[in-house]
Design a protein around this nucleic acid. Structure first.
Lengths: 220, 220
DNA sequence: TTATCGACTGAACGTTGTTTAGTTCAAGGG
DNA sequence: CCCTTGAACTAAACAACGTTCAGTCGATAA
C-alpha cells in the first residue's frame, strides 16, 4: 500500500500547492488577479492540471475561502468563555470586524458576493454548530441575553436581533473594505466607527446589566 | 449651424441608446451579463462603435449608475421638509434601503465594489451639496440633531454618527442583496430587519424628543 | 512482458475587452 | 463643382480568459 499512499500524498501536496499559489495571488491582488494560467505558472504545471483537483475556478477559490474561514470560526468560538452574553456579543463584533479587515479579499468573496452556500455539503454539515458556525454562536448568545432579560422588548426575537447586529458589523466592515481610500467622506478612524456601531446597537437593543454582577453597566 | 446641431443630437441619441441597452442588460442580469458585443447587437452597431462614446466598459457602466443615482439623491433630498432631524434621519434610512433593494445591481456597483469616485470630476462637483450628495444631507441632519441636544454624548461627532448610521443601513441592504436567497440563516422579514436596525441605532445614539414638540418620543 | 489507469500535457474552442487600419460619407473651402 | 478634411463607424485582429479533450507518459498490477 505504500505506493498508493505515496500517490495520495503527492496528490494532496499538489492540491495544497495549488491552494497556496491561489491564496498568494488572491490575498494580494484580489479575485480578478487569480488566473488559472498564473496559478499554473507558479506551480510549474499546465492550467489543465488544476482541473484534476478542482471542478472549476470558482470551486478552487471557494475551497480556499472556506478553509481560511474555519480558522475564523474557531477563533470566534473561543469567546464562549465570556460569561456575560452581551459582553460576548460585543467581543464577537470586534473580532468579526478585525477578521474582515485582515482578510478583505476573503471577506469580499464570502459576504459581499452572491454564493450558493445552501448547496455546499460540508458547509451545511457545520450549520448550527456554535463552534463552527459564527451565526449560530451569535444567535445563541443573543438567545441567552434574552433569557437573562437583557434585551429590550423589540429585540426579544433572537434571529432578528442577531441579524441586525450582524448587519451592523457587516456594514462597518464592508464600507471600510470598499470605500476606505475614498475621500468623498471624511472617514473617522475605523476603530471608532466599529465601536460606535457596536456600542450604539447594543445600547439600543439591550438593557444595562444588573450592578454587582457580570461586567460593568454600559449606560453613562 | 443646423447640420452641426443635428450631428450633435444624433451623437447624443446614440449615447443614450447605448446607456439604455446597457441598463436593460445590467439591471436584469447584473454586471457580468453586460457585454460590449451584446450591447452592440442590441443597438445594431459594432462593439468598437461604443468606444466613440465611452472610454471603456467600466466608464459606460459607471456613467449609467451615476445617472440613475442622481434620481435617488434628488428623491432623498425631498425629506428636507421633515422638521425633526432625528425623524428625518429615520426616513432617510428607510428611503436608502428601499432604493438599494429596488436597484440592487446599481447599488452593488456603487457601494459594494471599489471605485475611484475621487477622480471623478462631475461627481466631486456635487460633493457637499445636500441636494445632490446623500451623505452630506445625512451629515447635516445629524449635525442639526446634535445642535438640538438630541444626540448622546458619544455620538456628538456628526461624521462619526453619520458614518455609523450609513454603515448600519448599508449592512442591512447589502446583506439582503447578497444573501437574501441563502437559507443558511432563517432570515426575518427585510422590513423588520430594516426597522430593527434604524430604530436600534437611533435608540442607542439619540435621546428622546422633548414631549409636546416635534414627533412622539421613541422610548417605550 | 504487457495491459491498465491516473496524471498530466498540448492544443484547441469560444468568450471576453480592446486596438487599429481602413472605409464611408457628409460638410466646408477653394 | 471638386476636393479635402474629419468624424463616425466597421472589419478584423489581438491578447487573455476559463474550459475541454484527444493524446502521452510512467508507474502499477496481472
Amino acid at each position: 500500500m505504500t505506493s498508493a499512499d505515496r500517490r495520495a500524498r503527492e496528490r494532496q501536496e499538489l492540491h495544497d500547492k495549488i491552494l497556496d499559489a491561489a491564496r498568494e495571488l488572491f490575498a494580494t491582488h484580489g479575485y480578478e488577479a487569480v488566473t488559472l494560467r498564473k496559478i499554473a505558472e507558479a506551480i510549474e504545471y499546465t492550467p489543465a492540471a488544476i482541473y484534476g483537483h478542482f471542478q472549476d475556478k470558482d470551486d478552487l477559490i471557494r475551497t480556499l475561502c472556506k478553509r481560511d474561514f474555519d480558522v475564523f470560526s474557531a477563533q470566534l468560538s473561543t469567546l464562549q468563555t465570556v460569561a456575560d452574553p452581551v459582553e460576548r456579543v460585543r467581543l464577537l463584533g470586534h473580532g468579526y470586524v478585525r477578521f474582515a479587515l485582515e482578510h478583505p479579499q476573503h471577506y469580499r468573496l464570502m459576504f459581499m458576493t452572491p454564493n450558493d452556500l445552501e448547496h455546499d455539503e460540508d458547509a451545511l454539515q457545520r450549520r448550527g454548530d456554535p463552534h463552527r458556525d459564527g451565526y449560530a454562536f451569535l444567535r445563541l448568545s443573543v438567545q441567552e441575553a434574552i433569557e437573562r432579560g437583557r434585551m429590550r422588548e423589540l429585540y426579544r426575537d433572537a434571529d432578528l436581533a442577531a441579524q441586525t447586529f450582524w448587519a451592523g458589523v457587516h456594514g462597518v466592515a464592508s464600507l471600510q473594505i470598499t470605500h476606505a481610500s475614498d475621500n468623498w467622506v471624511e472617514w473617522r478612524d475605523i476603530a471608532a466607527r466599529t465601536r460606535a456601531m457596536i456600542d450604539g446597537l447594543l445600547d439600543g437593543m439591550t438593557t444595562p446589566a444588573p450592578v454587582g454582577r457580570g461586567k460593568k453597566a454600559v449606560q453613562p
